[in-house]
């Protein structure tokens, strides 16, 4: 089912998705992004500075939110013009194979000119909102 500009309206919901994040994902993200902050890979240090566990990079979660929107919008990562989030809570990532689950949902907030829409995104981990004021303007086919 391909979403098109004409097929959506204000309030159209994006099919929810759950993405898992494991320690391996954080190590790969650290390498790819160059963000080697120790709280994202060393549990001993993370706990010593008062964190519940190793926590995911906020930018990793934002990247997942971007993927959530562009997969819905036809699969073109270049279709995003504006994209902003507020990081409202941490995503602790346990040292096991399952990792943490982040649930994404969203809806169309506004239809704009040029086949673009603004999407409001919600991301939750363990019931807590980890992104707020998360909005992307994306061009639809």
């Amino acid at each position: 089912m391909t979403v098109t500009y004409d097929s959506v309206g204000k309030g159209t919901e994006l099919p929810p998705r759950t993405y898992r994040v494991t320690r391996l994902d954080l190590v790969k993200y650290a390498g790819a992004s160059g963000d080697f902050n120790i709280i994202h890979w060393n549990e001993r240090v993370a706990r010593s500075v008062g964190l519940p566990n190793v926590i995911a990079h906020g930018m990793y979660t934002m990247a997942q939110a971007g993927r959530f929107v562009t997969e819905w919008a036809g699969g073109d990562p270049g279709a995003v013009a504006d994209f902003g989030v507020r990081f409202s809570a941490m995503v602790p990532v346990p040292d096991d194979d399952a990792g943490a689950a982040v649930e994404f949902s969203g809806k169309v907030l506004e239809k704009l000119e040029g086949n673009r829409v603004t999407v409001d995104i919600v991301a939750r981990a363990d019931g807590t909102k980890v992104l707020t004021r998360a909005r992307a303007t994306v061009r639809l086919p």
């Binding site: 993405y19 994902d25 790969k28 993200y29 390498g31 790819a32 992004s33 990793y60 990247a63 997942q64 971007g66 993927r67 562009t70 997969e71 699969g75 073109d76 990562p77 270049g78 995003v80 994209f83 992307a136």
Partner: peptide
């Protein structure tokens, strides 16, 4: 690293076909 599966980030031919000068970066 972010689980972005799009060919537009990996395959130059696919990116050209989509109208981009080369493979594109995720947002």
């Amino acid at each position: 690293a972010i689980g972005e599966a799009s060919e537009l980030c990996r395959n130059r031919e696919a990116a050209l076909k989509a109208g981009y000068p080369d493979v594109i970066a995720p947002p």
